Simulated scan of single mutants.
Amino acid sequence: MITISVVICVYTEDRWEDILSAVASVRAQSRPAHETLLVVDHNTSLRERLAKEYKEAPHVRVLANAGPRGLSAGRNTGIAASGGEVIAFLDDDAVAERDWLLRFAEAYDDPQVFAVGGATRPVWASRRRPAWFPEEFDWVVGCMYRGHPTGRVRVRNVLGGNASFRRTAFESAGGFATGIGRDGDKRPLGCEETELCIRLTRARPDAVLLIDDRAVIHHRVPAARERFRYFRTRAYAEGLSKALVARSVGADKGLESERRYTTRVLPAGVGRGLRDALLGRPGGAGRAGAIVTGVVAAAGGYVIGSVRARRAGTEFSVVDVVEGPEERRSEGATG
């Protein structure tokens, strides 16, 4: 039976209840995790509080991020400290359904599978989706969006908040690149998992990457992220991130999925919004306008990011995180 370690990267005590819920959902899995690793991003008080909370909890460990501030380094710390044959990643403000790890494990029965992602569903703070918020842009709040492949199918990349990788994937491609993804309270960048997945398939052309939408997690969307201002800012940041990815792996691969999304999925979404507006349905015009705004913001971010990347050179690095996980188990670990 393949062993799966779960890594949850955390950074703020403001999400205390969310973190506890995330860990509880892992401990309640129908297919038990080998261990749960809580990696704390340069927050001593949170690390100490979590260490106390889980002091007596079996198979739950609390670690300090051993690298620079940010999500990528936190994930790399978890990978290096973990003992599972597969490493799964869960957002700190999400809860996994009971068969989440079971679905991942089933996919790894095929030795060619190197990564498996699942479906992330939004849990809106206001209890319902804002009428103007298009499903085509649910990636803005870290969730599966309209136009993303469904079922159990092969994909270019998995989505980082609900994903798993075979350990040998990191042996082949290295870890998550620092300098692309989120870094505390800075601009909400992303795409670090996209860059890693493309790097992986270049290093291992035989590698299969899957999405299985039966591996479900529910991701909390706070009120601040239901606002149009965040929508626009996140779309712009996505453009910046895509520019870094394109510089790293080339525009052909870096933008392969995005071309279909922008030429087919989004125009169809605008059409649906305008149709709903004509039929007098709530939010139709707003959704169409939001899609157009999101495209313009992302395109602007991509252009500016590309210019900056050319001037400054690549601003991220890839590290080897699997040279000896057992040696790093005790570094910064408590609980």
Rank of each mutant, 00 (worst) to 15 (best):
A131T: 11
S126N: 02
G151P: 13
C143I: 10
W124D: 01
Y145G: 09
V140M: 04
G151N: 13
R129T: 07
R121F: 12
P134I: 00
M144C: 14
G151A: 12
E136R: 03
W139P: 03
E135F: 03
Y145A: 15
A131K: 06
V140N: 03
W124L: 06
G142E: 10
W139H: 12
S126C: 07
P122V: 03
G142F: 08
S126M: 06
V140S: 06
R152I: 05
V141H: 05
W132E: 00
G147W: 00
H148A: 15
F137R: 00
P122K: 00
R146C: 09
S126A: 09
W139D: 04
R128P: 04
P130H: 04
T150I: 14
C143A: 14
R121K: 11
P134C: 03
W124A: 01
R129A: 11
V123P: 06
A131L: 11
A131H: 11
V123N: 04
M144G: 15
R121W: 09
V140D: 00
F133S: 01
P122C: 03
G147P: 01
P149Q: 13
R146W: 11
T150C: 10
R128Q: 15
V140E: 02
F137V: 00
A131P: 07
H148Y: 15
M144A: 15
F137S: 04
R127S: 14
M144Y: 10
V123D: 07
F137Q: 01
D138V: 12
C143Q: 08
Y145T: 10
P134Q: 02
E136D: 11
R121G: 10
R127V: 08
G142N: 07
Y145E: 11
R121N: 13
P149L: 11
V141C: 06
R146Q: 14
R146D: 09
F137T: 01
V123Q: 09
F133E: 00
R121L: 10
F133I: 04
V140T: 07
H148V: 10
P149K: 08
W132D: 02
D138A: 14
P130V: 02
V153M: 13
C143S: 11
E136L: 03
G142A: 14
R129D: 06
G147M: 01
E136V: 07
W139C: 08
G142R: 06
G142H: 09
V123R: 08
V141Q: 03
V153W: 11
P134H: 02
R146M: 06
D138E: 10
T150S: 14
P122I: 01
V153F: 13
V141G: 01
F133W: 00
W132N: 00
S126L: 07
R152C: 15
V140W: 01
A131F: 05
V123L: 13
P122A: 05
A125L: 05
A125S: 13
V140I: 15
R152G: 12
E136A: 11
V123I: 14
